[in-house]
Design a protein around this nucleic acid. Structure first.
Length: 475
DNA sequence: CGACGGGACGC
DNA sequence: CGACGGGACGC
């Protein structure tokens, strides 16, 4: 990824969202003093002290842009209400309104502490809490359910005490959760009992050393620092965007000893949902499988997602966690010392080629998926899925679209492939690359060519239609 | 010619 | 009360 300290293409937005602070300080406060106090919270990309155009005197207002929202939030939490120098007034620190919003209303913590996530339908609220507590103190957790049947809709909210905790969850939780900040539930004004509404704006309290966040922390100190890990179970949910068979999942996860169950999940109509449940007879195997196979490309170009699911009877306990280290160490040595294990160790998480050469080619017989006269280069690694998309190709299929896994297999070979998207019900799709050159190579090689009997037109895509809702697009 | 996804809450 | 500059090199 390139370093854009300055990004004209997203001029009106803050990227990532909520990574910029709005400060109200004394007029005497300089950029240097701000930098001194704020750089400890993370990578500062820009500091701008607003000055009068004529007199060039500071207006006592500044913007501080961080690389990450979690850094900006932490700085806000720690610095709001503090004095930056002797004899200066306590500063106010808010997440800046995005430039495009046009609003100058203070961004409230209500809007920064609740996240919205997609979860397996099998998740309980306890599973949710176990999974997301590692990012901070959870105030509240709910799964959205069908009101009559009580069945999970696979969607949930998690409310943290602090904005930095919600931001950290969004930045660091498994991508399959697709975590984003939740829209505030109601535009209702007053909040009754929460920590923030009263204390937050009133930074000059009887104890000037403590602001609302530190207060909230103090109120909540009960459970101590028990949030070092995810929920850990013997049961894994495997998700794939390309269709996969039970045999494929079985062969892959059976490379790790101790599997005692593997079954595809089906929707109410009996269709394969691209998810499988895998259970091991011990925690160490499950941990190892999750570490090794989450994000693994299988088949090449298709990233598997592997998460722990609570199967109800083996939630980890402090004792369990201690035992786990032993078990995991044993697993490592067992896997390392078996021929199968050595191959798996070699196959690094994203390297499907080695995996095939070493192993699955033997254990997972598979028809070649791609038939074409084009001389295709070998498979290349996908770009990280959060890479900035630099070029998109627009592909027209005739007479019918190719499956997504075939497209990934073909289009990943030019390098830096980020994602393939086929428009439902139409004969067109988009191929996203993080390097423009790779997109151009793919276009040159494949435009007008036939793959699996489907003729392709491959062109540069027009920029997508502007939409300013929900989550910022990656392109 | 052929064009843009996914996921929203009983107070 | 307290809200939006500077400067860009790729095709």
């Amino acid at each position: 990824m390139e370093d854009y300290s300055f990004r004209p293409s997203v001029d009106s937005l803050d990227d990532p969202p909520n990574s910029r602070l709005f400060l109200v300080t004394s007029k005497s406060t300089s950029e240097e003093v701000i930098r001194e106090h704020f750089s400890v919270f993370g990578e500062i990309q820009d500091i701008w002290v607003v000055k009068d155009k004529q007199t060039k005197e500071s207006k006592g207002v500044s913007f501080v842009k961080f690389a990450k929202s979690s850094q900006a939030c932490r700085a806000m939490e720690e610095m709001h209400g503090k004095c930056l120098a002797e004899g200066t007034k306590p500063i106010k620190v808010f997440i800046a309104q995005s430039r495009s919003s046009g609003s100058h209303r203070d961004v409230e913590d209500e809007e920064l502490t609740r996240i919205f996530v997609m979860i397996p339908k099998t998740f309980t609220e306890d599973d949710l809490k176990e999974t997301f507590k590692e990012y901070g103190d959870i105030e509240y957790c709910v799964i959205i359910k069908n009101k009559t049947t009580g069945e999970s809709k696979g969607l949930a909210y998690v409310r943290y005490l602090k904005p930095s905790q919600a931001a950290t969850a969004i930045e660091n939780c498994d991508k399959t959760f697709r975590a984003i900040l939740a829209e505030p539930r109601n535009k209702n004004v007053t909040t009754e009992n929460d920590y923030f509404s009263n204390v937050r704006t009133d930074h000059v309290t009887s104890d000037p050393g403590m602001n609302a966040y530190q207060f909230a922390e103090a109120v909540n100190y009960g459970m101590g620092e028990m949030r070092s890990t995810d929920i850990i179970t013997r049961c894994l949910l495997v998700s794939s965007r390309a269709s996969i068979t039970q045999e494929q999942v079985y062969s892959l996860f059976d490379l790790i000893p101790g599997m005692d169950y593997c079954e595809m999940q089906r929707d109410p109509y009996g269709f394969n949902k691209g998810q499988a449940m895998v259970r091991y007879n011990n925690l160490g195997s499950a941990v190892y499988a999750k570490e090794k196979l989450n994000g693994f490309e299988y088949p090449p170009g298709n990233r598997l997602a592997v998460v722990y699911v609570d199967d109800g009877d083996d939630r980890s306990s402090p004792v369990g966690k201690m035992a786990l280290q032993l078990v995991t160490a044993q697993m490592m040595s067992m896997v390392w010392n078996s021929p199968a294990g050595q191959q798996l160790m070699k196959a690094n998480t994203n390297n499907a080629e080695e995996f095939y050469q070493g192993y699955a080619a033997a254990s997972v017989p598979q028809m070649p998926r791609v038939q074409t006269d084009v001389a295709l280069p070998p498979h290349k690694k996908l770009a990280p899925s959060d890479s900035r998309v630099k070029e998109r190709l627009f592909v027209v299929f005739n007479p019918a679209p190719l499956p997504v896994d075939v497209l990934e297999d073909v289009f990943c070979r030019f390098g830096s492939l980020v994602e393939v998207y086929v428009v439902p019900g139409r004969n067109v799709g988009y191929i996203k690359y993080s390097e423009r050159k790779n997109a151009n190579d793919a276009m040159a090689a494949l435009h007008g060519k036939v793959v699996n009997g489907v003729k392709l037109k491959v062109m540069l895509a027009d920029p997508p239609k502007e939409e300013s809702h929900k989550r910022q697009r990656t392109y």
